[in-house]
């Protein structure tokens, strides 16, 4: 399972936890998950943060650039529901408002183990 990470407007808290998910303690990589550099190489998007006005179109473009079949993972409360930024002035909405979301990882930020857990559900291992 290869994912392209898109920061749609996060506070970078989620990013730190994602990095931890791939670090020695949880090691999401051992289940076959990997972050890749291009959506073309990916099987889905790992979106963090609330979708801001500036990032809505790029997010959609990234989704379009991903070969099918593809999944969208919303990581963190912001991505799932808007979190603390819900309804703020520069915000379009949660990821669900822009793209079809397949997996949600709640938490602000989610624990590395929770992220790994969600990725394992995708890789099936």
């Amino acid at each position: 399972m290869q994912l392209r990470h898109v920061d749609a407007g996060s506070c970078n808290g989620c990013e730190i936890e994602i990095a931890q998910a791939f670090a020695p303690v949880s090691d999401a990589g051992r289940f076959g998950a990997r972050l890749v550099a291009s959506p073309r190489h990916a099987d889905g998007l790992l979106v963090t943060g609330v979708v801001t006005k500036n990032m809505a179109v790029p997010l959609q473009m990234t989704f379009e650039a991903t070969p099918r079949p593809r999944v969208v993972v919303a990581c963190g409360d912001c991505a799932v529901s808007g979190g603390v930024f819900a309804g703020a002035y520069g915000v379009v909405g949660s990821v669900r408002d822009v793209l079809p979301v397949d997996v949600e990882i709640p938490g602000c930020p989610p624990e590395p183990s929770e992220i790994t857990e969600a990725l394992r559900r995708l890789t099936g291992r």
Binding site: S38, P39, R40, V57, P58, M61, E64, R68, P69
Partner: peptide, 17 residues
């Protein structure tokens, strides 16, 4: 069937509009 032929998409420009 819908995945059989290559899809044409805009070149990947890192999300630049």
């Amino acid at each position: 069937a819908d995945l059989r032929s290559p899809r044409r998409a805009a070149a990947w420009g890192c999300g630049r509009e």
